[in-house]
C-alpha cells in the first residue's frame, strides 16, 4: 500500500472531520457548583389534606382554580396534569388515613434535563428544575425519561407547553417561599437547603421513632431529590414508587454516550484500513491472473 500526498490528505480530512463531530457530541459533565440545592421537606404525618397547597399553586402559576368538589378521597388517585401541578391524595394505611402531596421531585440529577436535547428542561444552580418555552421542541423525551412521570404536555394546543412544578423558581429566586409552602397551615411543608432538610428529617425520626417510618423518601431515590418525604408507614402504602433505582438516571446513558467519541475515531480508521487491504488484495489477485 502506497501513501501519497493525496491519500494522506484524504485520511487526514476524514479523521479531522470525525474528531470535530465527536467533540461536539461528547457528554459533558455537569459543572461543579459551590451553591447548595434548595428543596422542600414534606411531612405527611402533619398533612391534613386541606388542599391549600393546590389552591395556592394554581393562583400563583395562573392555572384554573381547582374544582372544589374534587377532594382527596381514599381509593381515588388524583394525578397532576397540564392544569394542576400538585395534588393531594388520601391513602388507607396500617396507621389510618394518610394524606400525600405529589409534585415534581426536583431531582439532583434530573432524567428530564439529561434527556432534553435543547436544554429546555434545566436544573438551576439553586435546585429547581425549570422548563424554558423558547428552547423546547415539544419532543416529550423528558416525559419518556422521568421516573416520576411529572412533565405533562398540552396535547390539545397548537403551541403546546410542557408543564410541571418548578418549585416556584421565580418566587424563590426573589427570596420568597414556594407558594405551597407559604400556604400550608399545618407546617407539613418546610423550605430550605437540602442538607438542612435532611438533618431536620433525621432529627424528627430519631425524636419520634414510633411516629415515623425510619427512612426518607428522596434521600437516595433516583440519586436524590429536592422534595423529601416523611411518612408514618412504608412508602409503598402511600403510593410512592419504591421500585425506582437509588442512583442517578442520567448515569444509565453515560456508558453509551462516552463510547461515542471513541467509535467516531476508531470506526473510520478501521473501515479505511479494511478498504485499503481488501483492495490491495484484489489488485494483487488481478495482477497474478
Amino acid at each position: 500500500m502506497n501513501i501519497n500526498r493525496r491519500n494522506f490528505l484524504g485520511v487526514l480530512g476524514v479523521t479531522g472531520l470525525s474528531l470535530c463531530t465527536g467533540e461536539k457530541l461528547k457528554a459533558s459533565p455537569v459543572k461543579e457548583s459551590k451553591k447548595e440545592f434548595f428543596g422542600v421537606l414534606y411531612d405527611s404525618t402533619r398533612c391534613v389534606g386541606c388542599q391549600s397547597c393546590e389552591f395556592a399553586c394554581a393562583s400563583s402559576n395562573g392555572l384554573p382554580e381547582p374544582d372544589a368538589s374534587d377532594m382527596p378521597e381514599v381509593g381515588k388517585i388524583r394525578k397532576t396534569n397540564e392544569t394542576r401541578r400538585t395534588v393531594v391524595n388520601a391513602y388507607n394505611t396500617s396507621q389510618g388515613e394518610v394524606y400525600v402531596k405529589k409534585q415534581c421531585m426536583q431531582c439532583n440529577e434530573p432524567a428530564c434535563a439529561a434527556a432534553c436535547l435543547t436544554q429546555a428542561m434545566y436544573k438551576t444552580e439553586s435546585g429547581p428544575v425549570i422548563w424554558r418555552d423558547e428552547k423546547c421542541m415539544g419532543c416529550r423525551y423528558c416525559m419518556v425519561s422521568c421516573p416520576f412521570d411529572m412533565p405533562k404536555f398540552e396535547y390539545n394546543s397548537p403551541n403546546p407547553d410542557i408543564t410541571k412544578c418548578d418549585m416556584c423558581y421565580e418566587r424563590t429566586s426573589e427570596g420568597q417561599l414556594p407558594a405551597c409552602v407559604e400556604a400550608c397551615p399545618s407546617e407539613a411543608l418546610t423550605f430550605g437547603t437540602r442538607r438542612e432538610l435532611l438533618a431536620e428529617a433525621h432529627r424528627r425520626i430519631s425524636e419520634n421513632p414510633e411516629m415515623y417510618h425510619p427512612q426518607i423518601y428522596g434521600e437516595a431515590e433516583a440519586g436524590g431529590t429536592g422534595f423529601l418525604y416523611l411518612s408514618p408507614v412504608p412508602f409503598e402504602e402511600i403510593g410512592l414508587n419504591t421500585s425506582l433505582q437509588k442512583s442517578s438516571y442520567p448515569a444509565l446513558t453515560k456508558g453509551f454516550l462516552y463510547s461515542v467519541p471513541s467509535i467516531f475515531v476508531l470506526w473510520p480508521a478501521i473501515l479505511l484500513g479494511i478498504h485499503k487491504s481488501v483492495r490491495s488484495n484484489t489488485n494483487e489477485a488481478e495482477d497474478n491472473e
Binding site: 439529561a114 432534553c116 436535547l117 436544554q119 419532543c139 453509551f256
Partner: peptide, 8 residues
C-alpha cells in the same frame, strides 16, 4: 441550546 448530555 446544545443539550449535549442527551441521547436524542
Amino acid at each position: 441550546s446544545f443539550g449535549v448530555s442527551s441521547v436524542l
